[in-house]
């Protein structure tokens, strides 16, 4: 019985993050081809990705998404976020340091830096994003290359609140905790395990380079929790 329900939780994770991955791969192909064809400016990029992104963002479980340019990939701007977010799917464009009109350099943020370094899909967070959304989110990003050069990352944000609503019932059934690749709690059946807290005893929270894992406490509550599902599967 437990196995069925844990599968259910795993299915929900796969449905949500799997559909994000499919979209990011689509954006990667679309934007990669655009940059491979010649110089691209910010308006051109925005026009090119807008319809597809907004169609994807029909899914109300997403906070926002789009494509974020690598520094100097565009011909007219150093930094640029072709990104739509919030209930109104508002366009972002640039993120500013509060109180000044200077653009925030987002390349320090782990959702940009990690895929830039590894060349792989990444799930950042849970973290409070003050650059774009001002929300507590998980950001899934995929690096995009043209002619072997990084031109930016395709990404999508999901709020932790959405993940809690989506996954908590299934996690309760298996007394499970969803953790990120660093063993930090995303959502837990255990009310004492707060989001963001390190589940210090997880030895290998996300085996095989998994980005997310569901772990289950042992029956007596001692010893390391064991992984029962992971994503990507």
């Amino acid at each position: 019985m437990n196995i069925d329900v844990s599968a259910d939780c795993a299915v929900r994770i796969e449905q949500h993050f799997g559909s994000i991955l499919t979209e990011l791969e689509r954006v990667r192909a679309e934007v990669g081809a655009l940059f491979a064809a010649g110089p691209v400016d910010s308006d051109h990029l925005r026009t090119h990705v807008e319809a597809g992104t907004l169609a994807f963002l029909q899914d109300q479980n997403l906070l926002g998404g789009g494509f974020v340019a690598a520094p100097d990939a565009l011909s007219d701007r150093r930094l640029y976020l072709a990104w739509w977010q919030g209930p109104g799917r508002d366009f972002l464009g640039e993120a500013e340091v509060p109180g000044t009109r200077d653009a925030i350099d987002y390349t320090r943020q782990s959702w940009f830096r990690v895929p830039e370094r590894t060349g792989q899909l990444h799930v950042a967070g849970p973290y409070v994003d003050f650059v774009c959304a001002d929300e507590y989110v998980m950001t899934t990003t995929l690096p995009v290359y043209a002619d072997g050069r990084l031109v930016g990352v395709a990404g999508a944000d999901t709020t932790v609140e959405t993940l809690e609503r989506m996954l908590l019932p299934g996690l309760r059934e298996v007394r499970g905790t969803l953790v990120n690749a660093h063993g930090r709690v995303v959502v837990s059946a255990d009310p004492h395990r707060a989001t963001g807290e390190a589940l210090g005893t997880v030895p290998d929270a996300a085996p095989g380079g998994r980005l997310l894992a569901v772990v289950q406490a042992t029956a007596d509550g001692h010893g390391a929790p064991k992984p029962i599902a992971g994503w990507p599967a």
């Binding site: 409070v128 994003d129 003050f130 507590y136 707060a194 989001t195 963001g196």
Partner: peptide, 8 residues
Amino acid sequence: VAALTQSA
């Protein structure tokens, strides 16, 4: 530092 509080 504010973001590290994990509170939006």
